[in-house]
């Protein structure tokens, strides 16, 4: 008999479908028999899903502008440097 503790240990791999068919079948059997583990499994699945659906918010005001300025300032230096004829390819 598979224990709830063992079920929890395998839960991530179960949800990511990284288990061999035999272990997977054992876990599925446990799920059918154990309402607690079924709920934990279901709500863990939903937890992962709700985070995956989370979209990145807009950047706080000014951040984007300062990023552009920062990159314009610093990336330019690199371009100038890399266009120096003295640099060898080796």
């Amino acid at each position: 008999m598979l224990t709830c503790k063992r079920f929890l240990q395998e839960l991530s791999d179960y949800l990511e479908e990284r288990l061999d068919p035999e272990t997977r079948a054992e876990l599925q059997k446990h799920l059918n028999e154990c309402p607690n583990c079924w709920v934990v499994c279901d709500t863990t699945k939903k937890t992962i899903k709700v985070f995956k659906g989370m979209q990145a918010q807009l950047l706080p005001s000014g951040v984007q502008m300062r990023l552009s300025e920062f990159l314009a300032r610093n990336c330019k230096k690199k371009q100038e440097k890399s266009s120096l004829p003295a640099q060898s390819e080796s």
């Binding site: 240990q9 839960l11 991530s12 709500t43 863990t44 937890t47």
Partner: peptide
């Protein structure tokens, strides 16, 4: 990675369940 991920997921599940659980449905 796997063991930390499992713990993170379970801890988050715990916290979110407190927030999202169906009212009056904590029978287990």
């Amino acid at each position: 990675v796997k063991s930390r991920l499992l713990r993170a997921r379970l801890q988050l599940r715990e916290k979110l369940t407190r927030q999202f659980k169906r009212k009056g449905d904590n029978a287990y």
